[in-house]
Amino acid sequence: MSALPTPIPKRETVIEVRGLVNRFGNQTVHDHLDLDVYRGEILGVVGGSGTGKSVLLRTIIGLVRPVAGTVRVFGENLLALPPERRSMVERRFGVLFQSGALFSSLTVSENVALPLVEHAGIPRADAERLAGVKLALAGLPIDAARKYPSQLSGGMIKRAALARALALDPEILFLDEPTAGLDPISAAAFDSLIVTLRNALGLTVFLVTHDLDTLYTTCDRVAVLSQHRVLAAAPIDEVAATDDAWVQAYFHGPRGRAALQSAHPERKD
């Protein structure tokens, strides 16, 4: 729990995926996929459309039952646990879904307070107060707390959903395309928010994204999904040097070069 920010000497595995196979009908999404996520890191998962990034995320958090292979979160196989134990593990991670998935019948503050009241048994008034602080932590203006999700802009919904994901002080944060649909300024602010929170709260972050800027500015390691498995999982410079047509096109195309330039102005590609 001490001195977290940059690489940790001894790496503790919090998520371990081994031999994962996912298949929908005839279509194979993952074929013997292996992946490790270490405590305290921000892992970016990239890949072309339809390579199963979101499916991987949903498998890890136990929403999709794989055809074969094991997924261990904190050393536990979620799908094999009895409901009580599973719920205990689930409280240790928070998920930010792609479109926020805020409960539309509750206000933003009630959304964040819900897990506090349900799981931590905190009185409602205290829970709303804690929720207010979490919302402030996620960078949401306080007058937004009493609004309903339908009254918020895209960026604010993402922040509110982040506050809900952080409600129970999770150890792992799963983010599914957190910057998709945000304008570049909000996206950059969200990126730096994630790094700040990781440093302050000691989070492990599993980040599915298409956004090259997010990869360059936030991620410690990048995992590339291609041909049904993880092609490479390493710091971004190593991944970018991988000899693969898709990786080359992705990181060294015009957008990739621009993102590298803006993240590291001193470097020339």
Binding site: M1, G132, V133, L135, L137, D143, R146, L197, L201, G202
Partner: peptide, 24 residues
């Protein structure tokens, strides 16, 4: 420890923002 100080600072700031809002 450094990480804990960062946490205290972040939460302190957040509480500040929260408290400056007009009460309901």
């Amino acid at each position: 420890p450094v990480a804990r100080r960062a946490l205290l600072k972040t939460v302190g700031d957040a509480l500040d923002t929260y408290c400056h809002a007009a009460p309901r």
